[in-house]
């Protein structure tokens, strides 16, 4: 069985082709880069529509698969930006109805965890999922993925990106902040906000920008911003580990590229005698294979949807999704 999965929740338009043995035959994507400022949902959607056909052709060529060999089409129906989601949904529906292939709508966040499990061999991890659009601690409990912690305001990737933009660093900001942080020597105190299992980054971002305007050293500020934001992320992940007593920790999402964050999580996991996993970056960032693989899992476990059930849902939460395969 071969599934073609379409990801288009935010910046990335991605197509993945995956077999039911878990072989990733193609992982092709095209990323929308805003000319200035943050993401513009409608522009992102236009980008995705413009590259859809090309991306599909590249994916099929890469996988050496003809479209009539595809047995299932899946797409990310949320959470994400409405216009971007609808572009992916339209593409998926078109392929499905034109070639008469079954269609499944899958959850973006669940897919991040599932592809991570496939890629790393982790069985039942506490997952820290951190990107420009999401910041969540997710773990499987009583039949569902549940959110054990999340941001109360902006996602951590967004915090790094906006800080970088405000201090004049190129986009995306995360890698820039990481690069400069290596040269930071002194820790400058910044607001550290953990509320129970939840996090908040907007005060941290504002204060870091303010300290820069007041003449604070940029290297030290990048270092301090990372140390503060990541310590909070790791603390909340640690709380979930202590609470669930799980023995695996997984990091995913675009911010997973960060070496310091990896190191901190690895240390924390070690203290709890838990193993630590990070998928390859191609599968941490938004990607098509994660959507395809989750489609396969759902389909093989009896999930079927009629066309009218495959609507997009901008705020689709992980704990609303049935997980018959676990």
């Amino acid at each position: 069985m071969i599934c073609l999965g379409i990801e288009s929740t935010a910046h990335t338009f991605g197509i993945g082709i995956v077999s039911d043995k878990g072989h990733i035959l193609a992982n092709v994507s095209s990323i929308y880069v805003p000319e200035r400022g943050g993401i513009h949902p409608r522009e992102a959607a236009q980008h995705h529509a413009a590259v859809a056909k090309k991306t599909l052709e590249r994916a099929l060529a890469k996988a050496k698969v003809r479209i009539n060999e595809v047995n299932l089409v899946s797409f990310a129906a949320g959470p994400g930006l409405g216009p971007a989601l609808r572009t992916g949904a339209t593409a998926a529906r078109a392929i499905s109805s034109f070639f008469n292939i079954p269609l499944l709508a899958v959850n973006h966040c669940v897919s991040h965890v599932e592809i991570g499990r496939l890629a790393t061999g982790a069985k039942d991890p506490v997952t820290l999922y951190v990107s420009g659009g999401n910041t969540q601690v997710i773990a499987f409990e009583a039949g569902r993925y549940r959110v054990f912690g999340e941001t109360l305001d902006i996602p951590v990737g967004n915090c790094l990106d906006v800080f970088a933009r405000e201090v004049g660093l190129p986009s995306p900001g995360g890698p820039q902040v990481e690069r400069l942080a290596r040269k930071g020597k002194h820790y400058i105190a910044l607001p550290y906000v953990v509320k129970g299992m939840d996090l908040s980054f907007s005060g941290l971002m504002t204060e870091a920008v303010r300290k820069h305007r007041a003449g604070g050293d940029l290297y030290d500020l990048c270092h301090s911003l990372q140390e503060t934001a990541f310590a909070a992320l790791v603390e909340v992940t640690e709380r979930a580990v202590a609470h669930t007593e799980k023995k695996e920790v997984m990091l995913t999402g675009g911010v997973a590229a960060n070496k310091r964050l990896r190191e901190m999580l690895r240390l924390m996991a070690g203290e709890h005698e838990a193993r630590f996993f990070v998928p390859s970056m191609g599968l941490c960032q938004d990607n098509g294979p994660m959507i395809a693989w989750t489609g396969i899992l759902a389909y093989k476990h009896g999930v079927r949807q009629r066309l009218e059930d495959t609507v997009v849902n901008q705020r689709w939460r992980v704990d609303e999704v049935n997980i018959p395969w676990r």
Partner: peptide
């Protein structure tokens, strides 16, 4: 109100930053 934030709403908010 808090329940409706921090989800994906933040993503749309950042458009205007």
């Amino acid at each position: 109100e808090i329940e409706h934030r921090g989800r994906y709403v933040a993503k749309e908010d950042r458009t205007w930053r």
